[in-house]
Amino acid sequence: MKNFGSSILNQKEIAIGYREMTISWPQSLEAPLPGQFLTVKVTENPAPLLRRPFALSGFDREKNTASLIYQLRGPATRLMATLEINSSIEVLSPLGNNFTLPEKDETPLLVAGGIGLGPVLYLARELDKNGFSPRLVVGGRTESFLPDLSNLKNGSIHYCSDDGSAGFRGTAVDYLKSLDWKELPSARLYSCGPQGMLNACHNLALEKNIPSEVSMEQMMACGVGACMGCAIEVIGPEQYARVCKEGPVFDSRRIKWT
């Protein structure tokens, strides 16, 4: 974990309202693992004040670059979109925990909705590189909200849109339900996206009796476990867990779904 000055190497729109930013990564710093996140100090001005957390969407050790996906949502992300190539930003990373890797004989099913694409995409790319055949399911309202992703070598990408304008008509979870599960004897589910989607993924994992991890989101201040601000409700001896420290990745059976 380190707070470092980073250069913006690239910024591009990947779908309407969604952008991917590539930044430089210190050679001496450990590589972030899929699921881990960074926080960006967006401005030196006192507003917007807080750093913004984003999951890593990719990492390249040879080039020492990392990428993140963000959605244009408020003043901070609009400001990020105006930052020019080669300008510098302050980044704190790697933060939080990471996804558990699948067993050798397991089929990784990865589900992304909206801004949840980042960590799931990084996991898909890593698994793909390491000989797994991840099935990445990306859901969105309509075609223009779906990113155009470069293909995976061993794995596959499945688009789903609510209006049927691209790929499967329906939600990402509808798509998963439509699969021939007899062909997936040992699947493992990973998901990140809107709360409703994560809850549906959890329910599906229970029904199919497969392991399932979710990457959770919560308003965050410190990002390092100090302020107790980003708590979510969990099942267990402790009522709350910090998304920034115990998470952001949780076994979906540990979350208290409401």
Binding site: A47, P48, L49, M219, A221, M228, A231, Y240
Partner: peptide
């Protein structure tokens, strides 16, 4: 103390409001 109900934070102009609840 487990702390207060969620969410506990909201950002404001040049500031933030917290309700951690002495967790």
């Amino acid at each position: 103390r487990p702390g207060n109900a969620l969410p506990r934070l909201v950002e404001t102009p040049a500031g933030m409001i917290n309700s951690i609840g002495l967790a």
